[in-house]
Design a protein around this nucleic acid. Structure first.
Length: 105
DNA sequence: GCCGTGACGATTC
DNA sequence: CGAATCGCCACGG
């Protein structure tokens, strides 16, 4: 059917729909796709995602609102800046304010 | 069809 | 809060 063969493409599709100023979690995406336990696979999709794509992967964080590890993006500082630039707020721990910006497809 | 791997999640100490 | 552990699922070889 219209769904992509692999979860990867479906994940990218969902991430691409994330509105500006909002963030989503890997678990939320996996859940929306029908695989609540495939959070890891979602993260893997980001890892394998084509960098040239328009995927706002910086809007994807983990369930705790934590940003990506330093091995990606070039540093969580970059991700934080991007999100703040879009109107996302953070708490004292440097985590995203999920109560305000958590978005689910 | 098994094995290894991983930008996760939740629990526990 | 920090670190460690187990469980989960999907893809590639």
């Amino acid at each position: 059917m219209r769904s992509a063969d692999t979860l990867f493409e479906r994940v990218w599709s969902v991430v691409a729909k994330v509105p500006r100023g909002k963030v989503t979690t890997y678990g939320a995406i996996a859940r929306a796709l029908g695989s609540p336990g495939a959070a890891r696979t979602v993260g893997w999709a980001m890892r394998a995602a084509p960098a040239r794509s328009k995927l706002p992967c910086h809007r994807v964080v983990n369930a705790t609102g934590e940003l990506s590890p330093e091995d990606v993006f070039g540093g969580p500082d970059v991700q934080r800046s991007l999100l703040e630039s879009e109107g996302v707020t953070f708490d004292m721990q440097g985590h995203v304010d999920m109560k305000r910006h958590l978005w689910i497809p």
